[in-house]
Design a protein around this nucleic acid. Structure first.
Length: 568
RNA sequence: UGGGGCGUGGCCAAGCGGCAAGGCACGGGUCUUUGGAAUCCGCAUUCGUAGGUUCGAAUCCUACCGCCCCAGCCA
C-alpha cells in the first residue's frame, strides 16, 4: 500500500469510522489522537504489539498524535521496572509518542477535583459497605441489585467523608466512593460502580502522597478527555464498560468543561490470539516462574522481549500486524503467517552464509593434500550490491548429516552411495564409500570431486538435481546454535486448563547445538546481525549472550522446506 | 431466565441490495548452483441455520442455533 494512501485505502472498521468522523467534522479542529495505555505490571507481548501499532499507525496515517500513557492507578501491582521495559519494547517496535509520555498518576489531583464535583452535584457518594456487602447488593447477572443504604447520604457528608478518606483517616476497604447510576441496570458496570478506593500503599511515582486511588472506569475516560484522545481503542471485553465510559465523559463535560479537551469515545476491537502459544498474563508468568523458559525474554515466548532476543525484526511484526487486520470477531492468527512475515523481511536483509548444524565429515580423496581453494560466493542472490565473500574449500568437509542417505527414497536429490551432488558454489562430488562405527552409525564418507565442475566455469555438462551446503573442516569457526521450535506441541494451549497446560510444552522446543561449524567469514559478523544459514533458516547473532570465544546464534525461523513436506 | 458482542473457505479478512477482494495455508506448473526466493495456475455456485421481503440478499426483516465477555474496592 502506497504511503500516504493508507488513511483512505485501509478497509478495516476503525479506519472507516475515523474517515466518517472526519467527514462529519465531529473532531472539529482536533487532530486524530490515540493512545496506548499499558498498566506497568508485566511484560508486553505480541498481542500488545497489535494494539500499539494499530494506535500508532492510525495517528500517523491521519496525521494525528499518539500518546503513551501508563495506567498506573493500582500501586499494589505496579512497578518502575515494568515502566522501563514497556518503554524499551515500544520504542523498539518503532511506535513514537514524541514528547507525549504520560502517567495516569500525573492527573491525580485533577481527578480528585472532578470527584469532588461529582459529589457536590449528587453524582457520587461515599459508601461504607464492605466488599462482601457491595457484592451482595450488586445483585447477580440475572437479578437486579439493591440500593446501598448510603446511597442518599447528603452531599455535605459525602464531601466530608471523601476528604477524610484522602487524609488517611480510614483503613483500606472501609469506604469507597461510588458513582450513583442505576442499581437495576442489566449492565453490572452501571450498578453504582466504585470509582475511588482507599489504598494505603506506596506508588512508584507519587510515593505516599495519596492513599485513595481512582478505579479504571473512572480514571481512563477522564484521562482520555484531559489528553484530547479522540479515539480510545481497547479490546472487546471492555464493550460492557462503554456506557460507563460515556457516563464519565458526559459528567466531565458537564462539571469540568475547562479541563476537557475532547469528548472522547471508546471503540473496541478483538485482541490477538495466536496458535501454538499462550498470551494470558497468568500463563506467561507461570512459564517464567516455574522455569519452563529462560525468563521473560526467552526466545520461545511471544513477549516483545522474547521476539527481540530471538532475532525477529520490528519490521516483521509491523507487517504481521498489518496483515492480520482488525475486526470485532474472536480470532486466532496462524503462526505460519507470522513466520511468513519474518522470512519475507529477512529474505531481502539477511546475507547468506554456510553452517552445518548436524555435521557429517566427508573426505575428498582426489583432492591434493594440504590444498585450500578459495571460492567467491554471493552474499545474496538477486542482489549484486550485497557483495561477495571468499569461502575456503579443502579436502575434508562437513556436510549436513540429513543430506546423505544410504538408501535414498525416490525424489531424494541429495547425496547417496554412487550418486552425485553439487557442493554449493564449489564442485560436484561423487560418493564412493561409506564408513560406519560398530553400532552402524555413519561416521564418514569418501568422495571424489570432478575438477571440471568448478562453480562458474563448469565444462562438464553435468546436471545434478541436488545442491548442498558445506563447511571446510580446517577453516571452520565453531559456534553455539539454539534451535527454537514452538513452545507448545498443540495448536491451542490457551484452551487447556490452567492447571496442566505446562504438560503441553513441546519437549523439543529448544535444541542446543554447541559446536556448529560455520564458514570463517562469520568471524566478521557484528553482534545483533542476522544471517540466512543456507538451506537451514534465519539466525540471529545474539549480542547479550555471545562472547569473544563463542558466538551464540538463535534460529529465528526455518526456511520453507518442501522436501520435508513431501516426506510426510 | 439479565446485559453486551460475534458468526464469510483450514487461519485471518474485505464486502453495507446487483450476483463472493486480498493475504497466509494448501495443491500443481515454470524457473533455480538454497527442495529457499521469484513466477504462473488452482482453491467458497456460496456467506451459522430456516423462513420472509425484493426482479435481485452475505448484505433488509423474522425466528432459531452456536461461540465469546460481564457479578474485583484489577486493568
Amino acid at each position: 500500500m502506497a504511503e500516504g494512501n493508507r488513511a483512505t485505502a485501509k478497509t478495516n472498521f476503525i479506519y472507516s469510522m475515523i474517515r466518517a468522523d472526519l467527514n462529519q467534522g465531529i473532531l472539529g479542529e482536533m487532530p486524530v489522537h490515540t493512545r496506548f495505555p499499558p498498566e506497568p505490571n508485566g511484560y508486553l507481548h505480541i498481542g500488545h504489539a497489535k494494539a500499539i501499532l494499530l494506535n500508532y499507525f492510525i495517528a500517523k496515517d491521519f496525521k494525528g498524535k499518539f500518546n503513551l500513557r501508563f495506567d498506573d492507578t493500582n500501586p499494589i501491582k505496579e512497578e518502575q521496572e515494568f515502566v522501563d521495559s514497556i518503554i524499551e519494547d515500544i520504542r523498539w517496535l518503532g511506535a513514537d509518542w514524541e514528547e507525549r509520555l504520560f502517567f495516569s498518576s500525573d492527573y491525580f489531583e485533577t481527578k480528585y477535583q472532578f470527584a469532588l464535583r461529582l459529589i457536590e452535584t449528587g453524582y457520587a457518594y461515599v459508601c461504607d459497605l464492605n466488599p462482601d456487602k457491595i457484592r451482595e447488593y450488586r445483585g447477580t447477572l440475572t437479578e437486579p441489585g439493591r440500593d446501598s443504604p448510603y446511597r442518599n447520604r447528603p452531599a455535605t457528608e459525602n464531601l466530608d467523608l471523601f476528604e477524610r478518606m484522602r487524609k488517611g483517616e480510614f483503613p483500606n476497604g472501609s469506604r469507597v466512593l461510588r458513582a450513583k447510576i442505576d442499581m437495576t441496570s442489566g449492565n453490572l458496570n452501571m450498578r453504582d460502580p466504585v470509582i475511588y478506593r482507599i489504598l494505603h500503599a506506596h506508588h512508584h511515582r507519587t510515593g505516599d502522597k495519596w492513599c485513595i486511588y481512582p478505579m479504571y472506569d473512572f480514571d481512563h475516560p477522564f484521562s482520555d478527555t484531559l489528553e484530547g484522545i479522540t479515539h480510545s481503542l481497547c479490546s472487546i471485553e471492555y464493550s460492557d464498560h462503554r456506557p460507563l465510559y460515556d457516563w464519565i465523559v458526559d459528567r466531565a463535560l458537564e462539571l469540568m468543561p475547562e479541563a476537557i479537551k475532547f469528548r472522547s469515545r471508546q471503540t473496541e476491537f478483538a485482541r490477538l490470539s495466536m496458535n501454538y502459544t499462550v498470551m494470558s498474563k497468568r500463563k506467561l508468568r507461570r512459564l517464567v516462574e516455574e522455569k519452563h523458559v529462560d525468563g521473560w525474554d526467552d526466545p520461545r515466548l511471544p513477549t516483545i522481549a522474547g521476539l527481540r532476543r530471538r532475532g525477529v525484526t520490528p519490521e516483521a511484526i509491523v507487517d504481521f500486524q498489518e496483515r492480520i487486520g482488525v475486526s470485532r470477531a474472536d480470532s486466532t492468527a496462524d503462526l505460519a503467517l507470522f513466520e511468513h512475515c519474518i522470512r519475507q523481511d529477512l529474505e531481502i536483509k539477511a546475507p547468506r552464509i554456510m553452517a552445518v548444524i548436524d555435521p557429517l565429515k566427508i573426505v575428498i580423496t582426489n583432492w591434493p593434500v594440504g590444498k585450500t581453494e578459495m571460492f567467491e560466493m554471493e552474499n545474496r542472490p538477486d542482489d549484486e550490491k550485497a557483495g561477495k565473500r571468499q569461502v575456503p574449500f579443502s579436502g575434508t568437509l562437513f556436510i549436513e548429516r540429513e543430506d546423505f542417505m544410504e538408501e535414498p527414497p525416490k525424489k531424494f536429490f541429495r547425496l547417496a552411495p554412487g550418486r552425485e551432488v553439487r557442493l554449493k558454489g564449489a564442485y560436484i562430488i561423487h560418493c564412493d564409500k561409506v564408513f560406519k562405527d560398530k553400532l552402524g552409525n555413519i561416521t564418514e564418507l569418501h568422495c571424489t570431486y570432478d575438477p571440471q565442475t568448478r562453480s562458474g566455469s563448469d565444462t562438464s555438462g553435468k546436471k545434478v538435481k541436488g545442491v548442498i551446503h558445506w563447511v571446510a573442516v580446517e577453516h571452520a569457526v565453531y559456534a553455539s546454535v539454539n534451535l527454537y521450535d514452538t513452545l507448545f506441541s498443540v495448536e491451542n494451549p490457551e484452551e487447556a486448563e490452567e492447571g496442566d497446560f505446562t504438560t503441553l510444552i513441546n519437549p523439543d522446543s529448544l535444541r542446543i547445538c554447541t559446536n556448529v561449524p560455520i564458514e570463517p567469514s562469520v568471524r566478521a559478523a557484528l553482534p545483533g546481525s542476522r544471517f540466512q544459514f543456507l538451506r537451514k533458516g534465519y539466525f540471529y547473532l545474539e549480542p547479550e549472550r555471545s562472547t569473544a570465544e563463542k558466538m551464540v546464534f538463535n534460529r529465528i525461523v526455518q526456511l520453507r522446506d518442501s522436501w520435508a513436506k513431501t516426506q510426510k
